[in-house]
Structure formats: structure tokens, C-alpha cells
Design a binder for these strands. Structure first.
Length: 426
RNA sequence: GGCGUGGUGGCCGAGUGGUUGAAGGCAGCGGUCUUGAAAACCGCCAAGGGGGUAACCCCUUCGUGAGUUCGAAUCUCACCCACGCCGCCA
């Protein structure tokens, strides 16, 4: 949620900044917020003056009752003004509700340093590693996975439908190895606290991180309970401290969680959906940080580095892409995508998104900290990054490390977790 | 699912329908004392919003919403949540 006071102070500037996202509808939404805010402020003054008057008269009644003085004529007048207050107050609260719900639909301000424009303006900021060369035609991961007995997509379809991969044998073990490898790296070397959060969350939680109210159709829901399957661990983990005032000494707070992620991918049908490229359920190790506002840019770089380290240890060539304003997600201010090279499909696959949310989520989720003892609470800044998502990483691992004999080599970092240095065909 | 108990400030915990934004305690902050610290004692300590250059003034908030009343933390109703017991179950 953006700060409505900033919007009041500099409507033109905020509007222009938001329009860097390239969506004209945002301008309309901003104008709507400004109009509602104006209406709200017109009413607040009047209602509060009326209430102050009523409160004073009510106190006078109390005083007279105590002194056993008559108060009949006051009581009659108060009956009338009480009705009036009630009417105006409920009208004002309605406007307030409108303002709040309109504000929840305004995206975050793009970071000043982010490139401006649509996805085509995304900028590659660095590249690591060399794409492997083959003296044969490298196969895509879905062929490799089937041949290795690691992936059974057809039966995943039977059980649940397209986009629900079934990992088997060495594939399932690879999933488990990756989870342990990443969790160990982030907890032992990067200082994260491991958490195992709920996978079903309520509306307040999803509003906190920004998935609701605007993107309900992207979520799987258990309607009877009004609960939703998490699209990412960012959602439950960022909400751990929702509604709390944190001690400054506890910042930065750093959490890591291994969870499945569930995405309906409504509207994405047919695009890059072969094999593991775009699925409805995938596993992910997620990093979440809460910090003081003044260090959030530095925290963002640090966090991105933590995610990159996973790919380096897995010896996967990758590039870091800074998203342009128009391609940055609703809640994010600035995002670096990590894209891993996959030799079989011959493409860069997004396997992590490292974002800074400034105070946008903190404001929605009401996560604050006290800068010093006795000082006013302030909103924290929130950040998160995948560290990293499994499905596409597995695709890249299989495709990049395939050998002519049909086996797949594993990077040294995974060997102790997997218990072997390669996957062998059946 | 059934029955029961309960939701009050950063935390614990009082609270007869009328100076209760809310006793008391803990934590925190400032001070006295002390070489320093601890202890003891004294004082200050909620959040959000509107207005004002400022001092400051005003409004709201005791799970949420509605109701009764001139006035609700307190009374009524509905809902939500937590805990306990029973039932079902990994």
C-alpha cells in the first residue's frame, strides 16, 4: 500500500512515478483514490467537530447527574444530535472503507534506479558461468527425466492434471537433496532462520503481501474455509510478524523456508509449458528479510547474492536481469530475476526473483519496528528472493549435465546430499 | 461436529453503564543513590487519524460488526478467533 499522505502532498509526482509501470489504468485508479480521499477529508472535520460537541454535552449530563441537578432539556437536545452523529459517522466510515479498498489496488512505486519501460527494457546486469557445449544434440529435460526414471509427467496428469509433475526414484531423491542443500547453505552460511510455515493461509495474510484483493483468480482456494494455497512461501513467512512492533535489535530478520508453491497460472496457458517449464505446483526454498528502511537497497544486493550463490554451487550458468518498471510485480519496487541457462531447451529460465518491497507490504501487513526505545514505531522494509525454485533448476541441471551415454552428472555440492555423482538411465 | 470457558496496552492483569485511554504489575526510558553496576526509591512511558508554524487541541480504538442508551470495555444479538472436554481422525 502506498502512503496516502505522499499522494496528497505530490499527486502529480506519484502519479507519474506509478505510470512508469506503463499501465494507463493505474492513472485512473490514482485519480479515484484522490477523489475519495478528498470526499473523506471533507467529512472528517465535520464529523469530529460534531462528536467533540456531543462528548462535551454528555460529560455535562454526567456532571449534573452526579450533583443531582436536572438535565432533561440537555438530554432531549442530545437525542437529536446523537442521531445526526450516527448518520454522518456511518457515512464517513463507508467512504473510509472505499478509500482503503481503492488504495489496496494501487501498485508499489517503481524504484528510481530501475529501467523504465516494458519487459523489453529489462537489463542484464551480469552473467556468470559458461553455457556447456555438446558434441551431440542435447535433449530437453522431459526426455531425460523419463529415460532416467526421474520424472513421470503422464502419471502426474492422471493424478491431478497438466502442470503437476510426478518425480520418481532418483528424481524424487534429487528434490530432497536440493532442499537439504539449499537450506543448509542459507542457514549455516548466510545466517537465515529456518521456518516451516502453513501452506494454507487466510485472506488477511494474502492482503498483507499483495496477492489480494487484486489477484484472487491466480490462487487455488479452499472456498469452504476461505483459505488459499500459498503461491510462494513469501506469503506466510512475510506475515510471521504481521501486526507486530519489532525491537530494532531484531533487524534485519532473515527467514528461509522450503515449501511447495501452488499457482493457477490463469491466462498463461500454452506458453512455455512443456515439461517443468511452467507448472501449477513446484517446490521452492524462499528467503525473506525484514530490515530498517535505510538499509533496504544494500539488503537487496545481499539477498540477491545469497540466491546467486545457490546457482554457483550448482555450477549452473545464469544471468541477473534487472526488471524494467513495466515488468516489476505489483508489490515490488525493484526486482532482479535470476535466469538459469538450460541447454536442452536452449533458453534462459527464470528460477529466482529477488525483490525489494520497500514499506509497501509492511504498510499492508502493519509490520513496524521501534527505531529506539520510546520512539514512534516505523514501518520495516520487506524483501524476498527465491533461493531457488526447483522445477526449472532441475530442468537446467538435467539438460546441462547430460552425457552422451544417457546419464546425467551432478555438481559436487549435491553429491553428498544425493549420495551419488550421477543419475543413470534405467 | 457437540458442549464449555475466554478474547483489555510491548507483555501479564483489574475493571459497580457516567472525568476509564483504561487500576496494578513486568519490560523500557530518565533521575536520585553508588567508584561502577545491582537493589531501593522518584518520575515518564499505547496506537492510528484530523487540525495547528508551534505550544497544543480534537476524533477513534478494550476480538469484529450491529443494537439498547444522552452516554458502553461494562448490557443484548450475530460472527470470528483461542483454549478445554467429548466425538471423529493422522
Amino acid at each position: 500500500m502506498i502512503d496516502v499522505r505522499l499522494l496528497r502532498q505530490d499527486p502529480a509526482g506519484i502519479r507519474a512515478a506509478l505510470l512508469r509501470r506503463g499501465d494507463e489504468a493505474i492513472g485512473v485508479a490514482v485519480d479515484e483514490v484522490l477523489a475519495i480521499d478528498l470526499r473523506w477529508r471533507e467529512r472528517v472535520g465535520e464529523v469530529e467537530r460534531l462528536k467533540a460537541e456531543r462528548n462535551a454535552q454528555t460529560e455535562e449530563v454526567a456532571r449534573r447527574k452526579r450533583n443531582r441537578e436536572p438535565a432533561e432539556e440537555l438530554l432531549a437536545a442530545l437525542k437529536v444530535s446523537a442521531e445526526r452523529v450516527k448518520a454522518l459517522d456511518s457515512e464517513m466510515r463507508q467512504v473510509e472503507e472505499q478509500l482503503h479498498s481503492a488504495l489496496l489496488r494501487i501498485p508499489n512505486l517503481p524504484h528510481a534506479a530501475a529501467p523504465v519501460g516494458p519487459a523489453e527494457a529489462n537489463r542484464v546486469v551480469r552473467t556468470w558461468g559458461e553455457p556447456p557445449r555438446f558434441d551431440f544434440a542435447p535433449k530437453p529435460h522431459w526426455e531425460l527425466g523419463e529415460a532416467l526414471g526421474a520424472l513421470d509427467l503422464a502419471r502426474g496428469v492422471k493424478i491431478s492434471g497438466s502442470g503437476f509433475p510426478l518425480f520418481t526414484g532418483a528424481g524424487a531423491r534429487l528434490v530432497r537433496s536440493l532442499a537439504n542443500f539449499m537450506l543448509d547453505l542459507h542457514t549455516r552460511e548466510h545466517g537465515y532462520l529456518e521456518v516451516a510455515p502453513p501452506y494454507l493461509v487466510n485472506r488477511a495474510t494474502l492482503i498483507g503481501t499483495g496477492q489480494l484483493p487484486k489477484f484472487e483468480e491466480d490462487l487455488y482456494a479452499s472456498e469452504r474455509d476461505d483459505l488459499f494455497l500459498i503461491p510462494t512461501a513469501e506469503v506466510p513467512v512475510t506475515n510471521i510478524h504481521r501486526g507486530e512492533i519489532l525491537d530494532a535489535a531484531s533487524l534485519p530478520a532473515a527467514f528461509v523456508a522450503f515449501t511447495p508453491c501452488f499457482r493457477r497460472e490463469a491466462g498463461a496457458a500454452g506458453k512455455d509449458t512443456r515439461g517443468l517449464l511452467r507448472v501449477h505446483q513446484f517446490d521452492k526454498v524462499e528467503l525473506v528479510r525484514l530490515c530498517r528502511p535505510e538499509v533496504s537497497d544494500a539488503e537487496h544486493q545481499l539477498l540477491t547474492g545469497h540466491a546467486e550463490e545457490v546457482l554457483r554451487r550448482l555450477e549452473l550458468p545464469y544471468r541477473v536481469v534487472e526488471l524494467a518498471s513495466g515488468d516489476t510485480g505489483f508489490s515490488a519496487s525493484r526486482t532482479y530475476d535470476l535466469e538459469v541457462w538450460a541447454a536442452g531447451v536452449g533458453a534462459w529460465l527464470e528460477c529466482s526473483s529477488a525483490s525489494s518491497f520497500t514499506d509497501f507490504q509492511a504498510r499492508r501487513a502493519n509490520i513496524r519496528f521501534r527505531p529506539a526505545a520510546g520512539a514512534k514505531p516505523e514501518f520495516v522494509h520487506t524483501l524476498n528472493a527465491s533461493g531457488v525454485a526447483f522445477a526449472r533448476t532441475i530442468a537446467a541441471l538435467l539438460e546441462n549435465n547430460q552425457v552422451a551415454d544417457g546419464s546425467v552428472r551432478l555438481p559436487g555440492a549435491l553429491v553428498p546430499y544425493f549420495g551419488a555423482d550421477r543419475l543413470l538411465p534405467h
